[in-house]
Design a protein around this nucleic acid. Structure first.
Length: 364
DNA sequence: CATACGTGGAG
DNA sequence: TCTCCAAGTAT
């Protein structure tokens, strides 16, 4: 099966900018960006990143806000924070060289088993297996896995290791991923073009469309949030930088919080701002309403104009607070949901009517 | 072993 | 409109 797969890869493999290059730093960056993220999404970020941080030294020397700004919009921001930390460790502990040893490279933050295998095989042609989403799907079909892949990780890893071509692990791993990305897709797999068709249990039983089995998940919880755009007398707006840990760590946002049962939006906003920033505000008109879906819950941001009344803002529940103008706000990294608020603010400043931004309709 | 962690695209 | 999920890792 190796020969057929490698031959197919030679003919039909994708051309990607991080493929067949002699730059382990760039390959590392691509592997991190590609975690849970499609190639098409990564492409522009990857190009910009290498222009801005061409070497591991350049990345290590950058400040975190610059790094997060370059990552803005890609999601899973711990990846950017870990990339930055790992770069500093690679410079300090490994003379600026990406480690070639599996146990060493997996001690770096953000590099787990499959990313390590991806880097080591792609950058150095070392015989380490991978098990990403593509490979899980390909292998689940190959053996007609009767359970969801998450229930058989040990077996799938073993299979990936057994199949791996020890003489050409780089091309073999890339071929496996390309097969999953282009032919052995989640829906409508093109088995008629597949180099592994004869070996595929799912195809032989004609159950390729049913595999891999998926876990059933319930509906996402939906939270209502009150958000404040607080103006001072200099026409500045108050933003805060979220703590390093957890959701959107290190990014800036407009302050606010969860609306309690029976609480009005206005009461919620005034309470949250008092609790989190220690200041008094007057809650005014609605600016916009933004509904946004994260991976594990949905939120509706009920955004209101507010006026600063008294008190010096304190970073009680965040790492930092700052008054900014609409002209300089773009220097700060913001999560996607807040980008919508900034756009609404620009429209407001330009004299337009308030807008509702709805990405996903509220379910309740 | 289960959950937290973003965003955009496809059907 | 809504669900699923895509080059996963950390805890």
């Amino acid at each position: 099966m190796r020969a057929e797969l490698l031959a197919w890869y030679g003919d039909c493999g994708r051309t990607l900018p991080w493929r067949n290059i002699d730059n382990s730093y760039a390959i590392w960056i691509s592997e991190i960006m590609l975690q849970q993220t499609q190639v098409k999404t990564v492409l522009p970020y990857y190009q910009r990143w290498l222009e801005q941080f061409p070497t591991v030294e350049a990345l290590a020397a950058a400040d975190q806000q610059t790094v997060l700004k370059a990552w803005e919009g890609l999601g899973y921001y711990a990846r950017a924070r870990n990339l930055h930390q790992a770069a500093q460790r690679i410079v300090a502990e490994h003379n600026g060289e990406i480690p070639k040893d599996f146990d060493t490279i997996t001690t770096l933050p953000g590099i787990g088993k499959t990313t390590a295998g991806g880097i080591l095989s792609s950058a150095f042609n070392l015989p380490h297996a991978i098990l990403d989403g593509n490979v899980k799907r390909v292998l689940a079909r190959l053996v007609a896995l009767p359970v969801p892949p998450a229930r058989a990780l040990k077996d799938l890893w073993q299979l990936s290791e057994i199949l791996l071509d020890p003489t050409n692990p780089r091309d073999f791993n890339q071929a496996l991923m390309d097969l999953g990305a282009t032919l052995c897709t989640r829906r409508n797999p093109q088995c008629d073009r597949c180099p592994c068709q004869a070996h595929c249990q799912a195809y032989n039983r004609n159950i390729q469309s049913e595999l891999p089995m998926s876990e059933t998940k319930g509906p996402l919880p939906h939270k209502q949030i009150g958000v404040a755009v607080i103006w001072n007398e200099q026409d500045q707006i108050l933003i805060d930088r979220r703590k390093q840990e957890g959701l959107l760590g290190g990014l800036w946002e407009f302050p606010g919080g969860k609306i309690e049962p029976g609480e009005t939006i206005e009461d919620c906003i005034a309470r949250e701002i008092q609790e989190e920033l220690g200041i008094e505000i007057a809650v005014g008109d609605r600016l916009c309403t933004v509904t946004h879906a994260y991976s594990h819950f949905k939120v509706t941001l009920n955004v209101h104009h507010c006026t600063h009344l008294s008190g010096e803002p304190q970073p009680i529940e965040c790492d930092e607070v700052r008054w900014v103008t609409l002209d300089t706000i773009e220097e700060y990294p913001f999560p996607k949901a807040n980008i919508h608020i900034i756009n609404a603010l620009r429209a407001y400043a330009a004299g337009q009517t308030p807008v509702d931004v709805v990405e996903t309709a509220p379910s309740t």
